[in-house]
Structures are given as structure tokens and as C-alpha cells.
Design a protein around this nucleic acid. Structure first.
Lengths: 349, 349
DNA sequence: CTGTTAGCGCTTTCAG
DNA sequence: CTGAAAGCGCTAACAG
């Protein structure tokens, strides 16, 4: 069976307290003799002693556990999780991931489990900011970083999101700078099954619009193309619209739908980026891998992960409320789909 | 501050034991009166009592925590994590993810933290099966599911992997069935920085070879095309080779490199799937999204996640050694890149 | 039907 | 320099 501290103490002929001091490296401070120290350490080693940190956590009231709750593990959240995990590990914290699948019930259940486990902090994209179970956070004083949607809470908290207006603006500005004059905005209503997604889409559309107007270029509702993803012929219609209406630039709400449309355009013989330039959003792996590779607006994920983790630990350490918002600035990642010099295409992604 | 059991016991004028029974739904078994039960429950409710399960775990010696250790969170491991998390949640277990980044040192450190936390089980792709820290698993009797590489261990354990020979065989067989006669095998040496990856690649190549030979078709080393991913012109050379040597089918070790090559082929005016058919491996998102969408061999991830979780819980429940191996069978997901009827292309992915 | 009590494994104050 | 003992929050004999 697993060795415990009391056994080590017994084998080393010291008290359990002494053993504790030694294995915790406090022998100096406590003035334990070199001899006893070595004896204890040697016995611990040969017994393969691994202290039960949970017992320690219980005693200390800190559990060295934080949780990340998100709708599901997409590419985006996987990257975030990875970054958070790395930073947390440096402080000897582990991280629990929970998918809510956009269900308030699941969220409530999971949150309860997590609080019962006494997580020291939480990073969450809440399903519904009005959900009553979020009050548990305040009541249990769980330091929380809200992402995308903020729930009112009296617990230590911080709110972070991306500047989506800027996402749209940058995408359009990039096309304008590359010489586009008739820019379409590609969106997909099917994405918008959740209120906060709708807000994101609208902000991006507005940003796009603002950039165009600022440049004195036309933009109105007729420039918005909607893909109904459940309808497989829809890509073709969109491509036709781009050709018929002589758009020379497309901003898409997301990379994946753009890749479809670009694929069809090329099949129709429209050269990209020569005749039409395209820029997506979210800078997914797909944008990097498709042919031609797709320029895309990056939401700074690594930076987000860092900001979240740092804010969370600051709250964990000080139990201090950090009520201000953080808006993270996006930036364009240029690839072949908006290249000026066609020769650049040769080099591949 | 957070309410604890003793406080609600006091407020309800019952002993702490009675309160415990009530909040744990054991009032029937213990014959607690309806009145006291309601009183306790009511007070617990209005105090917002959330039991400290960690204390309970300590008492019971079960911590309701399992860990997943993998090189990093790729698409693949994200999906796996998601599935495991779902199944674990149903048993009120949470899951900790740790990335090893292929470093033995990291693995050792993380494993120590996890064992110190007394995880009840582990799913791991070990960095190096000879690493001494893996002995901790046996010594601490941590039920373990090994993935891809198996370390010898006396702890309860199970080994799972995919049948990679079959992956290659299926891919080639699919092309043959679609009428291909000259099949190339696309590989990328840069992938093979890790021994187990080399084994996977070779198994796939052999499977591919076996299928072709069985069908009486030629296959030798000259049919193997190697992409050096660090060299951007390499895609073009590969495409040239395919054209010059009149290959009519390509099996790729992975989807991403295939997508590149397919992209270049189309630029060269080679119609896919009419002139050349292509099938990748791993069935990544990319295969689904690219144009034309790429047929790919799926490694049954969901099934893997389920098998792993079930085996792990069986071991956790029975502390029983499950030493046999499980080989999961892959299958082909057909998409446009191997379509027989070009009309099928119209429908999109 | 309810309460007392001895732990789970570890930390830490306080005495010696 | 070392040890006894209380306690983190909860569970579960055992006693009444």
C-alpha cells in the first residue's frame, strides 16, 4: 500500500512533525540536524513516498485547482486550455476542463461539482448570464474570469473579450489597402443560435462597414451575403453572386465558410487573389492549410490565455475584485488569398 | 465565509452526524425523522451549503479525478478529452489534462503532481516507455490506460492503439475499388521525430503495400513520395512527380500534406477526382472543409475515448489488471476526392 | 431516532 | 533540536 508520512516517521525514529518538516524542505528553518534529515529523506526515497497533497490542501484551504468551462473543445478552446494549463502548471496548479454544451443544466451540475471540490478559480463562458447557479460563485467567493459574456457577481471577477468591431474593421481595411473597391461581407445565420454570437457577428459587420465608409466605399445590406450551411447548393449561389456583382473582395465572419466559397470560385475559374481577394476571421488551422491559404484575422488566443491566467492568479492571491474589462486587440495574418504579387503564390503556405 | 457541516448542524440543533446523513440522502437508512430532515435541508439551502467533497474524498481514499497526459492538445486529443470528460462526468469524475510536449522531464514533474493529488486513474501516451518515473504508477497502483506506447507496469493497466496496418490497407483498397491502378504513397519524414510515429508510418505504408500487392498492382519504393515540409517548393515537386509518373491515386500518411499536394495538382489543371483520386489519414477537420473535400481514413476517436474510459473505470472499480491489448479498427470516410461520379461534386462537402 | 468519537493524511503551534 | 496534539471538513462505526 501507499506509504504515508507517519510510516516514514516511524521507520526513521522521529516524530511525524519532524518527518513533515524534512520532506517539505523546512528542516533548516526548524533546525533539524543533518543526520535526521538524511535518514528521513533516505527512508522516504526507498519507500517511494509521495505525499498526499490533497490532505495538505484540505488543511490549507487551497486546492491548487482551477477550472475552465466552455461550450465544447473547439480548436479555439483547445489552444486556450493548453496555454492556461502551461501557465498554471508553473504555479503547481492543475486545470479541469468542463464542456457545457450550451446547456444551463449541465453548467449548473458541473459548477456544483467544481465548487464542491473547492476549485480556487474559474474561467468561464457562461451559457446564460441570468442563470441562478452563477450566484454560487459569489456566495462561495470563487475568483472568476468571464469570457465573452459577463454575469454580475460580487465575487472577485474580471471580464475579457475580443474587440469584434476591430476584427471586422481590420479585415475590411486590409482588403482596401490591397486595392479592393467592392467588398462583400459573408455571414452565416446558422452560426447565430446563441445571443452572444449574434452580438459578435454584428460587431464584425459594423467594423467592416465602418472601414469601408471611412474609405468612401459603398457598403449596404446588399453587400451582405448569407450562407445557409444546411443547404449544400448555397456555396454555389454565393459564388455566382460574387461573380455577377463583380465583388473584388470578401470578408467572411469565419474561415470555414470562406474556404467553401473560395473553392467554388476557383472551380468557376475565378483567379484568387488576382480577381477576388478574401479574408476570413478567427485564423483557424484551416486558413493555414487550404489552397490558396487564407488571410485571416487572428484573435490573440495565447495572449488571452495569459491575460486570463494572470488575472485569475492575481485574484486567487489577493482575493481582490478586478472589475474592469479587458478587450484584446485582433490583428491580420496575411496569406496568399490577399497577396498583391501573384508570384508570392508559388511559395505555398 | 463558506458554511460547513458543523454550522448547519448547530443551526438545526442536531448533531453533525445527523446533518451529514441528511445532506447525503441517507436519512431513510438511518431513520431520521421527516421533521429534522426538512429542518436540516432548509437550513442548508438558506445557507447555500455546498459540501466540501475534497474532505469526503480524503476520508474515502477516492478522489474522483482522472488525468489525461498527451504530447499536446491537437485536434485529436481535444476530441478524446471531450469524450472522456463526458463519460467521466456521468460518474461524477473530473478530468485533468496535462501536456507533456514530448519531454520526459515535464512528464515526470506532472506525473508526480498528479500522483500526489491521488488521481484515481490515468490515460497516457508516454514520452519514453523506459522513463523511470513510470514505475511510480505501479508503486502507487494507479490504474493506467496506455495509448500508442505501452510501458511495462505491474499496476492495473491496459494498452490501446489503432490498427495502423489496416489504416494503410483500407486507404489503398478504397482507391483500388475506385479504379486506381497506379497508387503513390505520400509521406513526410519530418513527422517522424518520435519513434512511435515512425512505427505508425511504417505500419500504414505496409498496409498500403499489402493491399496493392493483393490486387496484383505494382508497389515499390519508387511509389513512395516524401514531402519535406520545411521546404515550400516541395509540394510542387511532388505534384510534378504525380503528373510525370501518371499516378492515378495517392494515399497520404496524413490529411494536411495531402491537401497541399491536391491544391497544387488542381493549379496544374489536373482534375480531381477524375484524373487522380486522393485519400488521406486521420480524418481531420481539414479533410472535411477543403475543396474538393478529402476522403480520409478515420481512426475511431469516439470509440477510443469510450473504450479507454470504460476500461479505466473497470480498473478503478475492481483494482484489476487488464493486461490485454485493444486494437481499434479504422474505416474510410468517403468524400469528393475519391468520388466515382463527378456529378457528386456539385453537392459540396 | 440521534449523538459521540475516531479517524482520512497532513500541517503547525506550542512545549519541552 | 524534537514531539504532542489540535484541527482542516467530512464519514461512519458504535453507543445509547
Amino acid at each position: 500500500m501507499r506509504t504515508k508520512l507517519s510510516e516514514i516517521a516511524q521507520l526513521a525514529n522521529v516524530s511525524i512533525a519532524t518527518a513533515s518538516y524534512v520532506v517539505n524542505g523546512k528542516s533548516e528553518a526548524k533546525g533539524i540536524s543533518e543526520a535526521t534529515k538524511r535518514r528521513v529523506l533516505e527512508i522516504a526515497r526507498q519507500q517511494g513516498y509521495v505525499p498526499n497533497r490533497t490532505a495538505r490542501f484540505l488543511k490549507k484551504g487551497r486546492y491548487h485547482l482551477i477550472a475552465l468551462m466552455a461550450p465544447h473543445i473547439s480548436d479555439f478552446y483547445a489552444g486556450l486550455l493548453q496555454r492556461i494549463e502551461q501557465l498554471a502548471e508553473a504555479r503547481d496548479y492543475q486545470i479541469i476542463f468542463s464542456s457545457t454544451f450550451d446547456s444551463v443544466e449541465r453548467e449548473a451540475t458541473y459548477l456544483n461539482s467544481l465548487i464542491a471540490r473547492r476549485i480556487d478559480g474559474l474561467i468561464i463562458l457562461p451559457v446564460d448570464i441570468r442563470a441562478p447557479h452563477l450566484k454560487l460563485l459569489a456566495r462561495n467567493r470563487v475568483p472568476t474570469v468571464f469570457f465573452r459574456r459577463r454575469a454580475s457577481s460580487t465575487a472577485p471577477q474580471k471580464f475579457m473579450t475580443f474587440n469584434d468591431f476591430e476584427v471586422g474593421r481590420l479585415a475590411a481595411a486590409h482588403l482596401i489597402e490591397r486595392g479592393c473597391r467592392r467588398v462583400a461581407f459573408l455571414s452565416a445565420p446558422i452560426y447565430v443560435y446563441h445571443e452572444y454570437l449574434k452580438i459578435i457577428h454584428e460587431a464584425r459587420a459594423q467594423g467592416c462597414c465602418a472601414a469601408l465608409q471611412e474609405a468612401g466605399l459603398p457598403f449596404d445590406d446588399s453587400h451582405v451575403l448569407l450562407i445557409e450551411r444546411s443547404d449544400p447548393n448555397n456555396n454555389a449561389e454565393i459564388a455566382d453572386a460574387v461573380i455577377d456583382r463583380r465583388f473584388d473582395g470578401i470578408v467572411s465572419i469565419a474561415d470555414d465558410i470562406m474556404v467553401h466559397v473560395v473553392g467554388v470560385l476557383r472551380e468557376r475559374g475565378v483567379p484568387l487573389p488576382e480577381a477576388v481577394k478574401a479574408v476570413g476571421c478567427n485564423n483557424t488551422e484551416l486558413a493555414h492549410y487550404c489552397v490558396p491559404s487564407l488571410s485571416s484575422v487572428e484573435l490573440p488566443r495565447a495572449q488571452l490565455g495569459e491575460a486570463m491566467t494572470e488575472a485569475l492568479f492575481r485574484m486567487i492571491d489577493n482575493e481582490v475584485q478586478e472589475s474592469d474589462e479587458v478587450l484584446l486587440p485582433p490583428f491580420v495574418v496575411e496569406r496568399d488569398s490577399t497577396a498583391l504579387d501573384p508570384a508570392a503564390l508559388a511559395k505555398g503556405p
